[in-house]
Design a protein around this nucleic acid. Structure first.
Length: 242
DNA sequence: AAGTGATCATAG
DNA sequence: CTATGATCACTT
């Protein structure tokens, strides 16, 4: 849908886009949003060129490519730390693949789920809670019919959960964590949870990590991660553009 | 076509 | 393995 592109000025941006060298972290929220807004309407090939990054033919073996490209353009600190992308701003960056109608094509990965040592862990102490406190959503065309290089970035959305969304997230998180605490992690499916779901998050189905068994002892299970369901992220986009 | 379970690359 | 970035691809 066209609404995703409502702030786009293709010709103006295309001309003066290439120029920046290595990006430094944005000094404040305004600078971050200015950079994000300047990407709206730009093709991934142009952003890649600007960052001296090559464009893969497809994402099958480069599933995190788009996210890392946008991180580079926005000056997010590289590295794999369990911290917000822009720790000094308290903002988490998430790219989200959308179809031609502006609907998310995939669920959104949030974080790995803790499966042991979770006694006393509360919603407000959780990584899910903290990561979703402030998110910069960057929509990107994701239909496979569009060559990766030609996919365009949409208008960014700076989001914070409203009261209802916060409640939905907390309820799902608490129900899922309760099952994990009871040693039923291997019985949890992606169908649990209204807006937040638990799914495998590993190199493959044979990867193992410690978890709680039904008798309270330690067992091994496939690592899991928390993901936001499509309807939830679709609502975020609708609320911003609709 | 949607949704769930599986998978890919990289850094430490 | 853990954690970052996610999308793939098979089942329903």
């Amino acid at each position: 849908m066209a609404f995703v592109w409502y702030t786009i000025h293709p010709h103006q941006y295309r001309k003066g886009f290439h120029s920046s060298m290595a990006k430094s972290p944005p000094k404040d929220l305004n600078e971050l949003m200015q950079r994000a807004n300047n990407m709206a309407g730009i093709r991934l090939a142009d952003i890649a060129f600007d960052n001296n990054i090559s464009v893969p033919e497809h994402l099958r073996r480069d599933k995190g490519w788009v996210g890392q490209l946008i991180e580079s353009e926005l000056g997010a600190l590289a590295g794999s730390k369990p911290q917000p992308d822009f720790i000094h701003l308290g903002v988490e960056l998430k790219t989200i693949p959308i179809d031609h109608k502006g609907k998310p094509l995939e669920t959104t990965y949030v974080t790995v789920a803790p499966l042991v040592n979770i006694q006393g862990l509360t919603w407000q102490d959780s990584v899910v809670f903290h990561k979703l406190q402030h998110v910069l959503w960057v929509p990107v065309e994701g239909e496979r019919s569009i060559p990766v290089a030609e996919r365009r970035v949409g208008t960014p959305i700076l989001w914070q959960p409203n009261a209802i969304q916060a409640q939905q997230l907390q309820q799902d998180w608490e129900e899922i964590m309760e099952l994990i605490a009871l040693g039923k992690v291997d019985k949890i499916t992606a169908r649990h949870g209204e807006v937040l779901q638990l799914r495998p998050k590993a190199a493959n189905s044979h990867a193992l990590t410690e978890s709680i068994a039904e008798d309270g002892s330690i067992q091994l299970s496939n690592p899991r991660g928390f993901y936001l369901k499509i309807e939830f992220t679709q609502q975020i986009l609708t609320n911003a553009f609709g």
